[in-house]
Design a protein around this nucleic acid. Structure first.
Lengths: 271, 271
DNA sequence: CGCGAGCTTGATGCCGATCAATGCATGTGG
DNA sequence: CCACATGCATTGATCGGCATCAAGCTCGCG
């Protein structure tokens, strides 16, 4: 997805690079397992506040939120943040890094249900049962803010903006899922991949990254699982896009050469 | 078990037929537009209270809920309860009847995203934008309880059980959607249809209906849209199931002859 | 340097889409 | 009551997109 390192485009003011691909490690290189960050970054000064839970909150509400999000957690690439069956206690806001979520059935089939980047929330599935119903796996070294769920409920009883914002986030997830159903139910391979790329770049752009160049953080197989395709089909479709001059593909480095062309692919039922 | 489903508890005695296929029409046949029912049925005495928003609420909370749900609305078969772009104001709980929701893309593709029966909530998609992002269409003459959303937010600030229950319902919708993604992304036609039938019968059973006999309220085309298949494929698959002795199919009348056989189909990746 | 995970590319076959015709139920007007 | 229209379902024949199987290829890493 994003620039390999640095050259982070135009994030906000405030501390901390929101640049996925970079974690904040001051002095203490790779420390073991879960960590509570010694220096705190409040929601109120986080450069992700316009993408995350704090959207639209007033100053005083924001300060309340700061009290809620007390801990961070590092998740190394390949590790799971939570897995199916785990007791549900917290939601997680991605601070840096990149995740996938996937569900799996008894018989071993599995399906990637989403990819999450900075500012996006993980764990909403757990509310329904008090257990998580999917796995969340870091696709690169990542950092999340831990949001204890019972405290969030409590606080959102007091602050209506927070309550409303939280409901919007859940609803948005539902709407997003419906979009994926549309994709899986009625699009052909090229349309799916085009829609996927446009969605990724759009979200990256909202985070201040280039609209035309990205580094995929996931394998062809993971893309395929998300899109209901086999990895070979994903690979072939990338190659086809390249032949047609829509993309420049070098492994996981993608340059979008003709965004309008991709867009045309997405909204044209056939041909 | 990975069928996309709501696990719904025990059916219930009580007033009002929750029977899909039957609507309550006393005297006043097709009256114009929206109607406020002259006789009221409170949530606290509704026979759907174990399937709907009131689940788990204590007596006093329930009485509060009664004050919230003041109006009903009749929706005739074929009419829409709301459509994409409509301003969002209320959620709707299906009291009697049967609905489908569908999203559509610019280019006219469309996708059924769900079927809703008595006790299920409609309209959660609207929260994210203050506009609905899908159409809800009655597949038979239906009646819904209107739940003004701002009042629900207000009330759920006061009653934590209600708040929690509402969050669970939203989360359950997300989990259900993930199940559908799994189905669309990784199952073959027979598996999809089998999963669909098992899910339907389970939900009907939770409402006190037979586990083995059902009347489909939707066309082959609508089933196909939901399952990402063409109507001919749905029809052929029904015929195949009949040949194999799994079902007895007479148009929309379905008898399930071998539930275990269907179940086996669903959880066996291949062969 | 060699190993392995991930990616690309080719050859082949199958599942489900598509096109087309017929059947069946319901409803309407003559 | 029948003739006819309409909407939905079934069934057949054919076709095409994507899966599958099978090599190689690339690149990062111990």
């Amino acid at each position: 997805m994003l620039t390999p390192l640095h050259s982070a485009p135009t994030p906000d003011t405030g501390e901390a690079s929101g640049c996925p691909g970079q974690t904040i490690m001051r002095g203490m290189s790779t420390a073991p397992a879960i960590k509570i960050e010694p220096f705190k970054v409040a929601c109120s000064s986080c450069n992700l506040r316009e993408l995350c839970l704090p959207v639209g909150l007033s100053k005083p509400d924001l300060e309340q939120l700061d009290s809620l999000v007390a801990t961070r957690r590092q998740v190394a690439r390949g590790d799971t943040l939570f897995r199916t069956g785990d007791a549900f206690q917290s939601l997680y806001a991605v601070r840096t890094g990149f995740f996938k979520t996937c569900v799996s059935s008894e018989d071993g089939r599995d399906q990637v249900t989403g990819f999450q980047m900075a500012g996006e929330l993980l764990g909403l599935d757990g509310i329904s049962n008090d257990r998580h119903s999917c796995d969340a796996v870091a696709l690169e070294d990542s950092q999340v803010c831990v949001i204890p769920y019972d405290q969030l409920e409590e606080l959102s009883r007091e602050f209506t903006d927070l309550q409303h914002q939280f409901h919007k986030i859940m609803s948005r997830e539902i709407v997003r899922d419906h979009g994926v159903m549309l994709l899986l139910g009625s699009m052909r391979a090229e349309e799916r991949l085009a829609a996927f790329l446009l969605n990724l770049t759009q979200r990256l752009q909202a985070r201040g990254f280039s609209a035309s160049s990205l580094v995929l953080r996931m394998t062809r197989e993971e893309i395929g699982s998300y899109l209901g395709l086999k990895l070979e089909t994903v690979s072939r479709t990338f190659s086809k896009f390249q032949e047609e001059g829509l993309l420049d593909v070098k492994q996981r480095q993608i340059q979008i050469l003709d965004q309008a062309g991709l867009q045309r692919l997405v909204n044209s039922s056939n041909c």
